[in-house]
Design a protein around this nucleic acid. Structure first.
Length: 647
DNA sequence: TTAGGGTTAG
């Protein structure tokens, strides 16, 4: 028998077996067979190369490629895409250049991979050269190449160019539409996104899970119902579509719908992942829903994602935002490899909950571990210094942003310093700092100065800050409200009346103030003097009884902020039924003898009378009250507050 | 072979 007659067949069989091993991910068997093969063809070499590229280990891939005796188009294409997915984009480009130099004919795959590399590097210049080669090589009609061009131009911010390519594809596929929709979205054109989506539907294409970018576009322009309808028409929807939906609900202020949507997702047996959980947990944090948050935490444990950094950081934040920093600390300690978000969430959470010294200790520990703080870390650290009245230490931290950490302070850091200096060293020092800002002061800066002026009772500079703030943001009600309060506090009633009528005639948008609390697994919302709660009558009875007890114990309502043209009784009435007081009365009526802390959340800052009232109430009723306003937490125990009346 | 969702402050 002539051995050589069978040799090609043997190589062929070996190479097919090699392919099978490689496809099933069995790299060691593949390598053994490859080493034993008496003769290796280019197909076998390419199969091995492809197996190495899937391992995402750059060095093995690189060495194997260079050990190959010959390279064809497939070898180069595999190498370019393999290096790109191993995040070695520069090396991928060098292989592409070598391919052209070696005069190996590029294929459609080559252009797709090379364009993908350029879009990752935002290499507009090289991408354009590739586009020219595409046209010269007559690949302009290839839908895969066109799709890669759309993605490349869109990612480089050249959405018009992307659209130019898209409009010239004769036979678009669903991916082309999805890519172009995504391109418009990434370039801040949600309306064009939606326009294109209706065009896509009228061309006979049905949305799939990758069309979820349309959902984001619809949420961005507030079309929540339309997003919901679109989701229902999707022929395939996965966890990403559901997560997109619930995040969208949250961004449109519909947090409770988002949470309901999460439950719907579970009942449809869609498996949530770490991104879904971190989003849902952050919604619970936003609403300070401790019991729902705990239930979601339990589900995260059930799905095995609670250890994930994204999820555990969200949990740290959630427990802190529910006034339970000890729970956060337990989670924080358990994390083996903490990241910036874990540290920041813990530092900021401690600061918000009045554990200011603990927050500073954590920051020092972070530095000892040679971790680089971020801008958010400094917002937390400076806020802590404000709470503690640590003026000098705060200034040291502020200067360290530039001198030690080589970062530029942001306007948020300057805003913290304005508060710190304004409160400790005086408004003049805060004004000096404003004069030294690296850019023009914005709304945040003037709003901060205005708040400090209010605390200090500095009407003159308060007027100046309010004027700037109104000029920059004419619809903002804040300057009107704060100035009115400042005038009222010093008895300038004519000015109070003037401000009130000016506010009526100006087109300012007033935030309606409300408070809420979670009782019996439900959220109960209250507005000042509101009677919409079904148990309203009983709540008012409870509150009146509480007020009577507090008055007896020496509480005297701070009527300075009430209207001046009414009698003293009416003045008392106008502040006694603030939303947070109604919320407190509701909890006391529902749970008269509870031991768990009473948790109340208010969407804006609460007034000094309510602060005084809660301190008194915590003592008289012997309960622990946690009140979270838009600024920070107040833990009231036995007549004292964790903020030490400094907020 | 190409595409989509996310956590910390203000």
């Amino acid at each position: 028998m002539d051995y050589h007659m069978y040799e090609p067949t043997s190589t062929f069989l070996h190479s097919r077996l090699l392919h099978l091993y490689a496809q099933s991910g069995n790299l060691s068997d593949a390598r053994n067979l490859f080493d034993k093969m008496p003769k290796r063809d280019i197909f076998s070499y390419n199969v091995m190369l492809s197996a190495y590229s899937k391992m995402d280990i750059y060095k093995d891939l690189w060495d194997f490629f260079h050990s190959m005796p010959i390279h064809d188009s497939v070898s180069y294409n595999t190498m370019i895409s393999g290096l790109c997915s191993a995040s070695c984009e520069e090396k991928a480009l060098s292989i592409f250049v070598r391919m052209l130099k070696e005069r190996v004919e590029p294929t459609a795959h080559t252009f797709v991979s090379a364009l993908h590399v350029c879009s990752k590097l935002l290499e507009l210049r090289i991408g354009k050269v590739i586009h020219a080669k595409v046209l010269l090589g007559d690949f302009g009609g290839n839908v895969f190449v066109c799709n890669a061009l759309i993605d490349f131009y869109a990612k480089c911010g050249k959405v018009n160019k992307a659209r130019w390519v898209f409009d010239r594809i004769c036979e678009k596929i669903l991916v082309s539409w999805n890519l172009m929709i995504s391109g418009h979205l990434k370039n801040g054109q949600p309306e064009k996104c939606i326009e294109l989506f209706s065009e896509m539907k009228s061309s006979g294409f049905k949305p799939d899970q990758f069309t979820s970018n349309v959902l984001i576009a619809l949420f961005q322009i507030g079309q929540v119902d339309e997003a919901c309808n679109t989701l229902r028409t999707m022929k395939e929807k996965d966890k990403i579509c559901w997560t997109t939906m619930l995040v969208g609900y949250g961004q449109n202020g519909l947090e409770e719908d988002a949470l309901q949507f999460f439950n719907e997702m579970l009942s449809e047996r869609v498996r949530p992942d770490e991104i879904t959980f971190s989003s849902v947990i952050s919604l619970c944090a936003k609403l300070a829903l401790l019991y729902q948050g705990k239930a979601v935490h339990a589900k995260a444990v059930h799905f095995g994602v609670d250890w994930n950094l994204l999820v555990s950081s969200a949990l740290i934040d959630m427990y802190c935002k529910c006034g339970e920093p000890t729970e956060s600390w337990i989670i924080f300690k358990k994390i083996q490899e903490k990241n910036m978000v874990s540290w920041n969430s813990m530092i900021v959470g401690y600061a918000q909950n009045g554990r200011d010294l603990g927050a500073l200790d954590l920051y020092e520990e972070m530095l000892q571990k040679n971790l680089r703080p971020s801008h958010i870390t400094f917002v937390g650290v400076l806020t802590t210094c404000i709470h503690l009245g640590f003026s000098e230490r705060g200034q040291e931290y502020f200067y360290s942003i530039t001198k030690v950490h080589g970062m530029r302070p942001t306007l948020d850091h300057y805003a913290c310093m304005i508060t710190l200096l304004g409160r400790s060293a005086g408004i003049d020092k805060a004004l000096d700092l404003i004069k030294c800002l690296p850019c023009e002061p914005d709304c945040r800066i003037w709003s901060t100065l205005l708040s400090v002026c209010k605390i200090k009772g500095d009407v003159k500079h308060g007027e100046l800050a309010a004027k700037h703030l109104s000029e920059l943001d004419p619809h903002n009600a804040e300057p009107f409200i704060l100035l009115t309060n400042m005038y009222a506090a010093c008895g300038r009633w004519e000015d109070v009346a003037k401000m009130r009528s000016l506010m009526k005639s100006s087109q300012v948008i007033k935030f309606s103030a409300y408070s809420w609390t979670e009782v019996g697994g439900k959220v109960h919302k209250f507005t000042a003097d509101g009677k919409s709660h079904p148990e309203s009558e009983l709540i008012y009875l409870e509150l009146n009884e509480l007020i009577r007890r507090l008055l007896e114990a020496g509480y005297s309502p701070d009527t300075k902020l009430a209207l001046n043209n009414v009698g003293e009784d009416e003045k008392i009435q106008s502040i006694c039924y603030h939303s947070e007081k109604l919320a407190l009365a509701f909890v006391l009526y529902r749970m008269p003898r509870g031991v768990a802390p009473i948790r109340i959340i208010k969407n804006i800052r609460f007034c000094s009378d309510c602060h005084f009232f809660m301190k008194f109430a915590s003592n008289i009723i012997g309960r622990y009250i946690i009140l979270r306003d838009s600024n920070r937490f107040h833990h009231f125990v036995g007549g004292q507050c964790s903020c030490n009346d400094y907020w």
